[in-house]
């Protein structure tokens, strides 16, 4: 492995892709980049990367995806999951990316105390669970 050719200046890690695969139970390599997930995603317009681009970065083992905002705009609504022609449960991949990001000590945002006084608790339980590594 010592003579591997680097095609990118970014360090890529097959281990990272494998870790996402383990944690999500989904093979990122099934994705053939058709983009149907992002086309139907109600949150794509709020994302810095399309869901298919998140998948792509995972496929090539690019850990910069851990700093992306897109997984935090995903509400696990599963619109992509029911539509993916390759049967990839993309929401599970998004969850794995969120968890790995949290486990590296990243905090995506804080829920405002004053605002949370008026929110239904199921919203708070939902967001708290999503922010628990």
């Amino acid at each position: 492995m010592a003579d591997q050719v680097r095609l990118s200046k970014v360090a890529l890690s097959a281990d990272f892709a494998r870790r996402v695969e383990e944690l999500s139970g989904q093979s990122p390599y099934r994705c053939y980049q058709c983009g149907k997930c992002g086309a139907g995603c109600p949150f794509a317009e709020y994302m810095d990367l399309l869901p298919s681009q998140v998948l792509r970065l995972v496929q090539i083992g690019d850990e910069r995806v851990l700093d992306a905002g897109a997984p935090w705009s995903c509400a696990s609504c599963l619109a992509c999951e029911v539509r993916c022609p390759r049967g990839v449960d993309i929401a599970k991949v998004m969850e794995a990316v969120r968890l790995l990001s949290l486990r590296k000590g990243r905090t995506p945002f804080a829920v405002d105390e004053a605002a949370s006084r008026r929110l239904p608790q199921i919203a708070l339980v939902g967001i708290t669970r999503k922010m628990t590594p």
Binding site: V111, E113, S116, R117, L119, R129, T132
Partner: peptide, 17 residues
């Protein structure tokens, strides 16, 4: 404190965990 508000989760958000 307003008893009608969700003050417990606001002050102790970890309850949601």
């Amino acid at each position: 404190l307003e008893p009608e508000e969700n003050f417990i989760l606001a002050l102790y958000p970890e309850v949601a965990r």
